[in-house]
Design a protein around this nucleic acid. Structure first.
Length: 117
RNA sequence: GGAGUAGGCGAGGUGGUUGCUCCUUCUUCUUCCAAGAAGGGAGGAGAGGAAAGUCCGAACUCCGCAGGGCAGGAUGGUCGCUAGCAGCGACUCCGAGCAAUCGGAGGAAAGUGCCGCAGAAAACAAACCGCCUUAUGAAAAAUCAUUUUCAUAGGGUAAGGGUGAAAAGGUGAGGUAAGAGCUCACCGCCCUGGUGGUGACAUCGGGGGCAGGGUAAACCCCAUCCGGAGCAAGACCCAAUGGUCCCUCAAAGAGAUGGCCCGUCUCAGGAGGGCGGGUAGGUCGCUAAACUCCUUGAGCAAUCAUGGAGGCAGAGAAAUAACCACCCCCGCCUUGUAAGGUGGGAACAGAAUUCGGCUUACGUCCUGCUCCAGCC
RNA sequence: CGGGGCGUAGCGCAGGCUGGCUAGCGCACAGCGUUCGGGACGCUGGGGUCAUGGGUUCAAAUCCCAUCGCCCCGA
């Protein structure tokens, strides 16, 4: 599996964000929350939103990088491609990598079950 | 050991795997070319000393603008440096500190306001308790003269007391009824002259017994400076939809002209095309800078001049992550000098149009200099 | 990139421009009274780093400077 993260695999436009917020569903995790919506493309897309509550600019950027790394390592299936918006919590800054990864995989499983219903 | 000050450095180093942003180049695809879009390969570059706070100053862009003034704002010792600044350097005076060193700075003799409480009195000075004295009365001592005390009235004083942050120079001596710059010495103050300095100012002399409270981070006055907005500035290309205007087509409608028809004009509507504006979106602005370092010269220095070298982030829901190997440093554990295992290598903090400053934040980091204290 | 405002008792606010007396007001809290008891009412009381740190002044919640936090507005 490719671990690349192309430009079209990321959500950038304001319209897309509004659409996902309006029609998407929520998942609450240990270190982050997710808003997700199945899309009609042949690939999944991702965005990370880190608000001011998380910390200053350095910690916000750091969290975004780690979350994007998670997505690269483990993308949703091609059959049911998703748009994901990740909201990291404050405790995601200090947590070790493998714990974060476990939590993320758990979240993906739960989401794929929900979408197939 | 403590304190002060000036400066430096700031993921510990090397290599690898996967991955991100930008640039160059090659290749595949569409295509007549120009060009375009997506994918792949190779090479190169990729956050800071404060990138921060957004406190100043500029560049740049658009808008406004005859000339002058008012209002408003900023700055405030002197001289110099700078494109400019609330910046920098040197010096002057005052203050804090044992000291190294640090901090402050126009005008109160242009005018207005304010100075609570306390205190007699808080700003053209005045006199509560006092001190001294004159007159009158009373009492006591005493032969009288007179002396002492008390009361009342008048006068002279500002030494002492007390209040306050602050009360018409300070200290000492003389002087006096008691006192007082009343007189004298020193210090302070005012006026004035000389000398040194570009200047702030310093210093020396002469004269005057002495004018005058604080507050301008209260209004204000003086000097100097300032047009406004900001890269979401601004420029260009412009989808869809709607509107305006123009043209063409079709020919059915209403009105005007007219006795009626054709024709012409107007209005509304249909189809197609065009112009203008500019929304979503895209492109440019967008990274070379009044820059940094070194040599030589001028200057105490800031800085300037000459010569040489270096320059290489440019995103846009916003680019640096995860893991592995070895070496170095530190902590903990195990055992037999040594080795093994394990954890850590930071703090403040992320370029957003670009520069010059200021301010604030940071490290068991490093270096130089200075002062104080203790011990040898 | 610019502009403005706020921070005062547990909570909501005055005072600030024009510096000075004890930093007040309402609710809340505590005690007492009233009532058979409670509420309401009346009386009394406690509670404040005036966001933080400097400065000006005889004197600062107030004036000036810096910092921290929160909120709003414009392009």
């Amino acid at each position: 599996m490719s671990e690349s993260l192309n430009d079209h695999e990321r959500i950038r436009k304001r319209k897309d964000f509004l659409e996902i917020f309006r029609r998407g569903r929520r998942y609450k995790g240990k270190y982050f929350n997710i808003v997700f919506l199945p899309n009609r493309l042949d690939h999944s897309r991702v965005a990370v939103v880190a608000g001011k509550k998380i910390g200053n600019a350095v910690t916000r950027n750091r969290i975004k990088r780690r979350m994007r790394a998670l997505f690269r390592r483990c993308k949703p299936d091609k059959d049911n491609s998703l748009d994901l918006i990740l909201f990291p919590k404050k405790n995601a800054v200090r947590v070790p990598w493998n714990q974060l990864q476990q939590d993320y995989k758990l979240a993906l499983k739960s989401i794929s079950q929900k979408t197939q219903l």
